[in-house]
């Protein structure tokens, strides 16, 4: 039996992506009924190992695993032995010794899920690795886009912000290109460089350069703590050219969708009126997140059936 992992969207075919999205769409029904649980993964143990802080992604995975009926081990690095210097590998080995069926891992370094997937026999789901990928976020964004736009071939999606270091942006870029969409990226020079064209994006500069052509615009959170020195100027400067406010929104199409992976820096990359406004589908993204994660657990934990490639 060959096990499957979900380490990233780069390398998944359109058929594989659509299979996950179709399954996720069907999972939504469970989250709308009174008993938000199925017995499918009863008796399976799913481990959430978060070596990097996150609230919403962790809760989303937590709910997804529980709603699929699995038992959950919820591990985060604060106050754990990893904080005392135990290596990632040792930490996971210890968890594995307690017998698990699936690992969902988030880590600040790119490539950690790939390393773990090589070492252990059970499926690994990447919940975000360094500046590489955040495939479940990419999938829930794709599902949200598909709900509103249908077939994504020929559609134009703009991603604005620190595209270079955003694993959300990268996963979306890979997935959107595979599904035939056109991707425009915009942001300050150091974090939205021309090199991104090698990954299939059209590189622009300011929000104004992309807003008119886009069917959907994905605003990224500007993370000062992640940037290091000298990559962007002040918040005011950022909001002036790379943020989305009502005036700018009006320059776009009437049905333009506004997306954001959360949490939103209100007033910086997104004006509050836009974040809460009619075009924003931010909360739908969150709803779809649980369904996507349930779908992945369903698909990956099958022995024969898990058909989602790493």
């Amino acid at each position: 039996m060959k096990k499957r992992d979900l380490l990233g969207l780069r390398g998944l075919s359109a058929a594989e992506l659509n299979r996950i999205l179709d399954t996720a769409a069907r999972m939504r029904a469970i989250n709308e009924r009174r008993i938000k649980k199925v017995p499918t993964l009863r008796g399976r143990t799913v481990v959430l190992a978060f070596f990097e802080n996150s609230t919403r992604t962790r809760i989303s995975f937590d709910l997804a695993a529980r709603r699929m009926g699995a038992d959950l081990v919820n591990f985060s690095v604060q106050g754990s032995s990893a904080a005392k210097g135990e290596s990632v590998l040792d930490t996971i080995r210890n968890l594995d010794a307690m017998r698990m069926d699936c690992l969902i891992v988030r880590h600040g370094s790119s490539g950690v899920p790939h390393m773990l997937a090589r070492q252990f026999p059970w499926p690994v789901i990447n919940a975000g690795d360094g500046i590489n990928e955040h495939p479940t976020q990419g999938l829930l964004d794709l599902l949200t886009l598909r709900d509103h736009l249908g077939d994504l071939r020929g559609r134009t999606v703009a991603i604005v912000g620190d595209v270079l270091h955003s694993r959300v942006a990268r996963s979306n870029l890979f997935g959107l290109r595979t599904l035939g969409a056109r991707v425009l990226v915009a942001g300050p020079g150091p974090i939205c460089p021309p090199a991104l064209a090698e990954l299939g994006a059209e590189v622009r500069h300011k929000v104004d350069d992309v807003i008119e052509e886009a069917d959907a615009v994905m605003m990224l959170r500007i993370q000062r703590e992640r940037l290091g020195r000298a990559m962007i100027s002040t918040s005011r400067e950022y909001a002036a050219f790379y943020g989305l406010d009502l005036d700018r929104l009006r320059k776009g199409r009437p049905e333009l969708l506004v997306m954001h992976p959360g949490p939103v820096n209100r007033g910086v990359e997104l004006a509050p009126e836009v974040a809460d406004g009619g075009r924003s589908v931010i909360l739908e993204q969150v709803t779809n997140g649980v369904a996507v994660r349930m779908a992945l657990l369903f698909l990956l934990l099958g022995e024969e059936g898990g058909d989602v490639a790493a």
């Binding site: 290596s87 990632v88 590998l89 880590h107 600040g108 370094s109 790119s110 490539g111 950690v112 390393m115 360094g130």
Partner: peptide
């Protein structure tokens, strides 16, 4: 062995 056991970054 230990120096390279973990992730690429560390």
């Amino acid at each position: 062995l230990v120096d390279k056991e973990g992730d690429f970054e560390s």
